[in-house]
Design a protein around this nucleic acid. Structure first.
Lengths: 130, 130
DNA sequence: CCTTGCCTTGACGCTGACGACAAGGTTTAG
DNA sequence: CTAAACCTTGTCGTCAGCGTCAAGGCAAGG
């Protein structure tokens, strides 16, 4: 499988695949003419990467999962390092949820205040009727 | 008040104040020697900007609030445009909360799966005992 | 006079995950 | 013979909100 096919099957771009390779996440073979050649396992690796990135992981966070898959496991999350990352990410998400909830509350409060204290001493965009 | 003092009183940097000015959010006077001169009103403007950015607003989102303050209002949120932004931001935050909650749920599920299917077929970092 | 400590503009760096070229090699189909 | 459709490496651009020099001007104290 060449890079174009992998990109299509993984739902991404060739640029992205080369980017992952440059960062050591994917290691294709090379054919005689220098083309990158991927096997089915790499497709699974790329899908794992994509899935994790979609959830908000960074490339570094993904590494343990890739290594885990490469070690022959059925899924990338069953290795200790992956679990560590999962725990850390979960904690991060929890923190973020807390802060975002606080922000939401503040926005609601401010919106209430704004509506209660409506003013007309406000900037006119551009006069709609000349 | 010169830029250094304003920066300190607003809890930010001179670089930041010049940045805001370059983006049309702050308009200081200039003294004879070319120094930027700010009045108390600008301090309030800068504090408003900072507060909104801290909550996750972008500079563009902040503009209506600044204009509202400049129009002479006691707070920057009482103008129609500000209210629009507040509503939009609240909706964005709600969306993000939903997605983040879904992500959290997925992480918990995956973590559970990972622990249930622990494997030792995993990559060794560097052997800790040679 | 010189140093210190303000201030000025200008311009590059940073972070992350790529997109978008450029300039060229290869293979296949017509 | 050539055009199409792949592939290669390399480099610059993107978004946002600044940080971090660089090179120099201005004012005041000793």
């Amino acid at each position: 499988m060449l890079i174009g096919e992998l990109a299509e099957r993984a739902g991404t771009s060739t640029r992205t695949l080369r980017y992952y390779e440059a960062h050591g996440l994917v290691r294709p073979q090379r054919s005689a003419n220098g083309y990158r050649v991927y096997d089915e396992a790499e497709l699974r690796v790329v899908r794992e990467i994509r899935a994790l990135l979609d959830v908000g992981f960074g490339l570094d966070d993904v590494r343990p999962f890739v290594a885990c898959l490469r070690a022959g496991n059925a899924s990338g999350d069953v290795c200790p390092d992956s679990v560590l990352v999962l725990r850390r990410k979960l904690a991060e998400v929890d923190d973020y949820l807390d802060r975002l909830t606080a922000v939401r509350q503040q926005l609601r409060t401010q919106l209430t205040h704004a509506i209660a204290h409506r003013e007309e001493t406000c900037p006119r965009k551009r006069p709609s009727a000349p």
